[in-house]
Structures are given as C-alpha cells and as structure tokens.
C-alpha cells in the first residue's frame, strides 16, 4: 500500500517536474524538481556549419549530437567541398594535411574541437594542428588554406587568405583573456 501511494505521488508530479522517487529502507520519497533543457545550437570547430552544411540542413546539424553527425552528414560535406573548391575537383586532390576529400570531410563532419591537455593548444600555429583553439588563432585563414590551398597551400591564393590576421583589440594575458567591450 505504501508503494502504491508512492507511485501515485510520483505520477501526480510527472506533469510539472521530472522526478526521482526512490524507495529506500524507510519508504521515503525524494523529489527533485529538474527542468529539462533541450538542445538549440552547438559548435565545435569554427565555421563548419556555415561552410559545409546545406541551407536546408543547418538546423538539423545543430541538433544532431556529435556521435551521430558523421553518419548523417559526411556525404553532404564531401559533395559540398568538391563543389566549393577547385582544389578538390579531382579525386586524387588532397589538402596540405594529405587528406583527400573523404578523409577531410569525415574529420569535419563530427563537429568537435580536439584539445590537448598536455601542452600547446592551438587550431594551427605552423607546427601544432588541432590541439585546441586559442584566441589569437587565425582560424579562418587556416580553414581557407585547407579548403582552397591544395596540397601545399599554394593554390587559389586569392581565396585562401582573407588577410585579417588578428583581432581588433589586444587580448589579455590573464583571466578572463578576452578584451573589454567597446
């Protein structure tokens, strides 16, 4: 009977809150009012949704969890990359990382930022690649080079660098690192 009452108590609460009824030794009922928050936007690497996802799929990309993005979006990414960049118009083309269109878009379609806990953290600093994203990293030029620059970053030079190489305000060397507002 106590269990039955507990169950009814829980059911009454379902509509208002998510709940946690635990029947412990004393048959006490613990209630936690836990609101549910639902996914609206997400981001790992910069500009990925912007550049590689077709217009009709942009909302879907934002609400597909990363572990499922690759299976859903890899083919679209490859199609769009090959349409986008003359540096990937032949099947043997690669970027400067040696990635062909399939390898490159398989990497990007799972939109997470890889971050090292053991040292330099940068999107690309000329030596380290995809070990984080620092404020000063020129991520757009890095991405333009990987998309348009071909095997040695030399192709399509007028498209592979936007020539904006730094922020308009100097970053701070200490917390909170971002510059004060305008």
């Amino acid at each position: 009977m106590i269990r039955k009452i507990t169950t009814i108590g829980c059911m009454l609460l379902i509509a208002a809150v998510s709940f946690n009824c635990s029947n412990d030794d004393n048959n006490n009922m613990e209630i936690e009012t836990k609101a549910v928050f639902a996914l609206e936007d997400q981001m790992g690497r910069p500009a990925v949704n912007t550049v590689f996802v077709s217009s009709a799929s942009k909302d879907a990309f934002n609400t597909t969890i990363p572990s499922e993005q690759g299976a859903v979006f890899s083919a679209m990414f490859k199609t769009n990359l090959e349409a986008l960049s003359p540096a990937f118009n032949e099947s043997t083309d690669t970027n400067a990382l040696g990635q062909d269109a399939t390898a490159f878009t398989n990497l990007l379609a799972t939109d997470v930022l890889n971050v090292s806990l053991d040292g330099t953290t940068t999107f690309y600093d000329g030596t380290n690649l995809l070990t984080g994203r620092a404020l000063t990293d020129d991520v757009i030029t890095t991405e333009l080079l990987l998309i348009f620059g071909g095997e040695d970053f030399s192709e399509n030079p007028t498209l592979s660098d936007d020539h904006v190489d730094a922020n308009d305000k100097e970053f701070l060397s200490e917390f909170p690192y971002l510059a004060s507002p305008w």
Partner: peptide
C-alpha cells in the same frame, strides 16, 4: 591526453 569538446545551448 586529448579531449573532444563542444559547446551547446539548451533551452
């Protein structure tokens, strides 16, 4: 080691 990380907004 290396982590994979991403940010989400949830309403």
């Amino acid at each position: 080691g290396t982590i994979n990380t991403w940010v989400t907004t949830k309403r």
